[in-house]
Design a protein around this nucleic acid. Structure first.
Lengths: 197, 197
DNA sequence: ACTAGAAACATACGCGACGTATGTCAATTC
DNA sequence: GAATTGACATACGTCGCGTATGTTTCTAGT
């Protein structure tokens, strides 16, 4: 069993993170109580401070988990698309749609940057961003995109997408607004094409 | 003098907002103490809760003030540019540069959305966004831009610009990175042109 | 196998901050 | 000129984070 101790610890960490995802998403980071949160996980604050150091540490762990899931989903969507250019558009649309989920929005887009600082400074620096950047790099190498800085392009693309998602989520008619947002996103993205259509 | 009372109240409001701008920018919203903040302004929490209701109300007032200043600056930059298209690019670059200021970044870009929710829901709905949207609408009417949804385009443009600014500010070599960001921004923006260059 | 040590977690406490309820004083109005 | 309104100060209750101390269980060395 390779240390029953470490196994229990990993399980407790997972339960705390799961409870935190729910609490942070439902009430927001500031309003979430560590006592309630840990009780929900069947533990106490002692476990929390031992595993994550402080409240911010717990948020960081939660963000990393969600970020990894998002990156995996975006990559899957991109892989399913035909050529690289379609993949980039598909990934962008995927980000917009993912950002509609309250959990992603509240934790990753609102509280995350405010509490942890700019995402580029995060330890596991934004897997989402890396996926986009890799796609951009490949397309530049293939001559599909203009030779812009890959990181800059990836940042702007993701920034536009995520901001659009906040707008869509806050609107009264998400379906209409989502269509407009994706439409405008595709238009913007064509600005990166080496040979405009 | 039209009521000395109202005059004093307006002055106190201004002093509180000024102290709050400094405190929120320096320490962040969560860490800023209302006691210190009000003392800095030569007042007490009584004045604060009477004028702004709660801590969020004070932040909202601060955000509105900064937002208005930013919009005015962007508009001035845009007016100074030649044609409408150049104005749009200039405004975008102006936003990126404004977002480099710690006050704007911390208060408007990080804490603002986290505490007050999505900017589109803010009472004095984002003057910055309105300026960009008006510019876009004019350019669409003139046939310079593709007929996309103006609000969507404005949101994406601002989102990209502000996100780029966060990146620039967090980087180790802001000058280099700023150039890359503006470069990529201009490339992206050309995607909106009806007749690509 | 037994003991010693450490680590994971629980419990108890202090500190600080927000929001409210009550009090006070100045300005406006009749 | 007196009363009332309202802007602001003061005092208090409550809550939540972080830390310091205690306890129990698992691992390791002999």
């Amino acid at each position: 069993m390779a240390t029953k101790r470490a196994q229990m610890m990993e399980e407790n960490r997972a339960r705390l993170i799961a409870a935190a995802r729910k609490a942070f998403a439902d009430q927001g980071y500031a309003a979430a109580s560590m006592d309630e949160l840990t009780a929900q996980a069947g533990l106490t604050r002692g476990a929390l401070y031992h595993n994550f150091g402080d409240k911010r540490g717990l948020l960081a762990a939660v963000v990393n988990q969600i970020d990894a899931e998002m990156a995996a989903r975006a990559q899957a969507v991109g892989a399913r698309a035909g050529d690289g250019w379609q993949a980039l558009l598909a990934e962008g649309a995927a980000y917009i749609e993912m950002a509609l989920e309250p959990e992603v929005q509240r934790i990753v887009l609102l509280d995350g940057p405010a509490v942890l600082g700019d995402p580029s400074r995060w330890a596991s620096q934004n897997s989402c961003l890396e996926v986009t950047q890799h796609t951009v790099e490949r397309l530049i190498a293939e001559g599909v995109l203009k030779p812009v800085d890959p990181e800059a392009a990836a940042r702007l693309i993701n920034g536009a997408a995520l901001n659009a998602a906040l707008w869509v989520a806050a609107s009264d008619e998400p379906r209409d607004v989502l269509a407009k947002a994706i439409d405008a996103f595709r238009a913007l993205a064509t600005g990166l094409l080496a040979k405009p259509v």
